[in-house]
Write a protein that binds this DNA or RNA. Structure first.
Lengths: 114, 114
DNA sequence: CTAGCCTGTTACGGATACGAAACGAACCGT
DNA sequence: ACGGTTCGTTTCGTATCCGTAACAGGCTAG
């Protein structure tokens, strides 16, 4: 799988542009990265773990979970085995959101990387 | 060029993650989209034109140009033929930034889309 | 020359983000 | 049971972003 630099940028730009044009309030780069980590990396996901993986402070994660939780994209649940932990879980709505995103990516790839 | 949905998401996540991990303050999704438009679409680029293309208001463009101008990623110059216009121009530093981005994308593709 | 339009910028109030530090709650070792 | 540690959250002050609306300056038609 080899791609030319200019193809890569056009592809990336195209996906970004569709996100910007969308009416939905844009997710922050950090928020989106958190969301993708939750959905692509194997659970369980804790605040601390996410913070470490992204190289950001814990409040960043808390705030992002607040925001995305309000949009229904993720869910928080106490870890019953260690009640200090908060486990972050996927939701149907979050899956749909990422499904739409991947559609955008795939289509952009098909048209920009031909 | 056909990609599976999960490959697409992993690819995208990887590039996002590298942006987040980077020490440099993250560009907003909008800022990045503006930058890519300036570098990929044929000039001239005006504030009004960029605003229309991205479906945002003019102050958004002005502010983004302020921020990216301070980082040296773009340059503003008066249009001498119609001094109302501001022409946005590329810089060496901006080219280097995008070159690094495209490297990230290409490498991520090579490893995620194998 | 001047009234009106077009440009980009600035002002404003509100929303949101940030990191550092303090905080309460839960766990653990002793 | 109690001091220390580890969680996630909250608070604080600061910085940034947003859209609306007002703005100053350049252009142009009459």
């Amino acid at each position: 799988m080899d791609i030319r630099a200019d193809q890569a940028l056009r592809w990336w730009k195209r996906v970004c542009l569709e996100q910007v044009l969308d009416d939905r309030p844009d997710l922050t780069l950090r928020q989106l990265t958190i969301l993708l980590t939750i959905y692509l990396d194997p659970p369980p996901h804790t605040v601390r773990g996410l913070a470490a993986r992204l190289g950001v402070t814990k409040p960043v994660i808390t705030r992002a979970l607040n925001a995305m939780g309000a949009m229904g994209l993720v869910e928080r649940r106490r870890d019953e085995r260690d009640r200090r932990n908060v486990l972050v879980r996927r939701t149907v709505e979050g899956s749909l959101f990422l499904e739409k995103l991947s559609d955008t990516i795939v289509i952009a790839a098909r048209e920009e990387l031909r």
